[in-house]
Design a protein around this nucleic acid. Sequence first.
DNA 1: ATCCCTTTCCAAAACGTTTTGGATGATTAA
DNA 2: TTAATCATCCAAAACGTTTTGGAAAGGGAT
Lengths: 338, 338
Amino acid sequence: MATIKDIAKLAGVSVTTVSRALNGYSDVNAKTRQRIEEIAKEIEYSPNSLARSLVMNKTKTIGLLVSGLTREGAKDNIVFDVLTGINEFCGAHDYDIVLFNTTTSKQKEKTYAQLCRERRVEGVIVQGIKNDDPYLLEIFDSNIPCVLIDVPVESETAGYVTTDNVDGSMKAVRHLAELGHENIAMMNGHGQAFVSKERLKGFELGMLEADLPIRSEWIVNGEYSESKAQEMGLKLLTAYPEVTAVVCASDLMALGVVRAAEQLGRKVPDQLSVTGYDDITLASYVTPALTTVAQDLFRMGYSAADLLLSILHQTSEERVRLIENELKIRNTTKEIKQ
Amino acid sequence: MATIKDIAKLAGVSVTTVSRALNGYSDVNAKTRQRIEEIAKEIEYSPNSLARSLVMNKTKTIGLLVSGLTREGAKDNIVFDVLTGINEFCGAHDYDIVLFNTTTSKQKEKTYAQLCRERRVEGVIVQGIKNDDPYLLEIFDSNIPCVLIDVPVESETAGYVTTDNVDGSMKAVRHLAELGHENIAMMNGHGQAFVSKERLKGFELGMLEADLPIRSEWIVNGEYSESKAQEMGLKLLTAYPEVTAVVCASDLMALGVVRAAEQLGRKVPDQLSVTGYDDITLASYVTPALTTVAQDLFRMGYSAADLLLSILHQTSEERVRLIENELKIRNTTKEIKQ
DNA sequence: ATCCCTTTCCAAAACGTTTTGGATGATTAA
DNA sequence: TTAATCATCCAAAACGTTTTGGAAAGGGAT
């Protein structure tokens, strides 16, 4: 493969001059530069980014650490949408993305920090990490610039982007309250996740705001899984048939609840209102189409990349980005029968 | 950041010895090795992969060139599923993946080959490329190991993985013929795509096999877009109401056709049978659930990575991988009314 | 005492860049 | 004429590894 040395030899100049010519420095004669550029094209030279990165000590690369990049994670396109946003921003700013594949086995032998240092990424975006993930601790210790999706970590070198999950849930509750619902249950995710806590908080605040009673038996966990939500929904709805609406912490779980209702012969939305969270593609295609709190995942990814670059270029003290969400009213919610 | 030199200094040995110790060579004393390893851990050494790659002339990295990594491409999770498969294989074989962001603007100034050479990827997987994409030509010229998804390119250094699209379409037609359909139309993608041609061929073969007439007016292009398919479907079904079934070259287009039928007051599957292709997540969730030819996209990605590594390690002469597909019969097809 | 293995180590070159700190000669200002 | 400025170039060091081709020392066999 052609190198800068080859060009130097052909052009009869030093490698210094070639380097400076190709990088647009002013201390090289116009004719020399032209000749060099011609030769470069001629022999199909392309710079070796490894060598360049090595000496310049920066790689123009960010790492992506995702735990949802598995066969199962494909149902909701959350990971993918965020990735798309990241990709968009990075493309515009000439950064490349390397996917770290952190299979469980490898996670043991190599730490997060090692992974990043080895690959010399300038920063990392972490997604789909659980609160008890071993990686999470390291992020705090390491001083590698880092942006988390939906995990609140703040430090000199770390920040996060999330949506206003409290407000999101409140929107859902408010909507149901306005439709006349009073006995509202919640299908939450699991206890460890930050967003679960926030969405629960929003649910409770919403209920308080509407002056409705919060009954702890009506708050169950579906583990963000469709089938688990169906199972728990079935239990909930048989034990407490007076429940007329359930706020879910994810769309997939909402689908599970809808299915549970069907199983019990309760029509959605006539005999049960259900709201989701996320607005995954499925949400609008399914029948009945899901009323849900839409998150702009693309923008989350885009913002995450933006925030990361601002951290590592130290252009801002900002460490948190809050993306707005929006309640999309579709066909799984309806005013309660008088 | 700690380097091999630091270790050498602390251990009182040469860098050579450190390198050899850390890489498991046998010509280093057990005690020395142990001391070196301890120091390495102590000062949190991690090897600089840039330097290593530079001298060894290999990066353990493959590139990923996708043209569907945009906001629009998110509806079907095709790109994502394939990516997941690639990631899985690469994880198991210690290869990293770098995402090339080929925005349209950059595509002009930097060629495919330049992109790859610069980043020193050992090989590339290309997905979502159209037959008239400028990159496609380069792939043939360049000698960079390369695997395409669903684009038939074969050479010393290039191969592809695809499903048996001819057979897939035939399965769909056969199924419809068995249900008694005789007037079967086809909603194809666009002319440039390889898979479109194959699926069309399968359609025609299937019709011949079932001894049914092929009418060219009944074969239309929906450009793989839901709305376009709806529009074309509307025209087709109003012009030729005698059509009782339509074979679609993608699930998204099938959804469009179903929608067109609804618009015309024709119930699916009672008054019109529709088959899709891909088995995207939506297919099984939508009502009525789509009868479709399922492609195992995960396996396609997995195989693509496998094939690529076999090409670049020259462990096999194989250049093509055919993944099986399967007809999933759901609720958009029904036997014709007598 | 000599020769030949082993074991254990290392100096130096190489990978392909960028950057530093001038050097050279020509032009301009005094 | 001399000094200062300018335009153009370059040698060498540096980045952090791996690899090559030995060297040195110790132990056995003869």
